[in-house]
Design a protein around this nucleic acid. Structure first.
Lengths: 168, 168
DNA sequence: TATTGTTATACTCTATAACTATA
DNA sequence: TATAGTTATAGAGTATAACAATA
């Protein structure tokens, strides 16, 4: 991998070495499972990015821009990074011919980042492959199991968001 | 955040902007949910790392070493990176007093990376907090929902491993 | 020859701080 | 003054390639 999106997985002490926890597929601890699943998805995302000649962050940028042009500050907020980081990120995307900066009519300070045709195609191709991989990953689940899984994730995500907004 | 572990989330076109997909908590698409859940866990891991003055990768290193000393090549394989990357990673951990290199009796080429007392305590504290956060994240699930969720993850992980080993 | 680990070099991504140009 | 974006600088993490020492 070039500039890998490092999957952070190991958390449970004893996960990598203890043979019994390694074959825990039979009755995997739920917290450990969640960490491993996260690592799985992350690794998949990184591999697909690389296959498309992108870093994970560049791929994410393209996907966001698929929705339309975005300002630098907007992107920084959406990525959860400082705006200075967006300068470099956009520079590299521009250098690779994936995106370009353009002026915003109403505000002479602002810039918009837009996908080029190349970038648009790259974004669509990348997104299609990630979707396919996710579908493949979820394929072992039965329709009923899938629905339970979906509902559980929705519950977790919804509750986490509620808790986050309470903490603000 | 200092040196953030960037959560890669955005994948679905229309996720960030379209208002209807944002309040998709009611009936979240399963693939989108998986990506969002991954982002959630990743973000949590990064925040806990930072709270402990660690980068996500350093935290992962400490957790792996909690199981006992490891050689550089072994760690590189376990992290899925080149061995050269481990040199820097270990240098930084050593500089921060979290780990140290020591000679291996039988092999004069090899080195072992071991946790210092400080590193051991940091690893335990970090791991405890990650576990607590995971437990909190999973708390909205009912016992039955939790079991379904656990089983679904186990199925996905097991099948993915089987597929991976078939592809080798 | 193969393996262990290091050094050298380069790139991506990030943070902070100071800066410019507008609003 | 506040906001949009940039530059400068520093650090982490990674890759590749070349190297040393030992097996």
């Amino acid at each position: 991998m070039t500039t890998t999106g490092q999957p952070i997985a190991a958390t449970a002490p004893g996960r990598e070495a203890a043979p019994e926890s390694r074959c825990a597929g039979a009755h995997l601890d739920i917290a450990v499972g969640l960490v491993q699943l996260t690592g799985l998805v992350q690794g998949m995302y990184a591999r697909v990015s690389e296959r498309h000649g992108l870093t994970p962050v560049q791929a994410k940028l393209l996907c966001v821009l698929l929705d339309g042009p975005r300002g630098m500050a907007e992107l920084a907020h959406c990525f959860g990074v400082e705006k200075a980081a967006l300068t470099g990120l956009t520079d590299r995307a521009e250098r690779r011919g994936l995106a370009r900066r353009s002026a915003v009519p109403g505000d002479r300070r602002a810039l918009q980042v837009t996908l080029t045709d190349t970038g648009h195609q790259a974004a669509l191709a990348f997104h299609a492959e990630v979707t396919a991989e996710l579908t493949r990953l979820l394929s072992p689940l039965s329709p009923g199991g899938r629905e339970h899984f979906r509902a559980a994730m929705a519950e977790i995500i919804t509750e986490h968001r509620a808790a986050s907004s309470r903490d603000e």
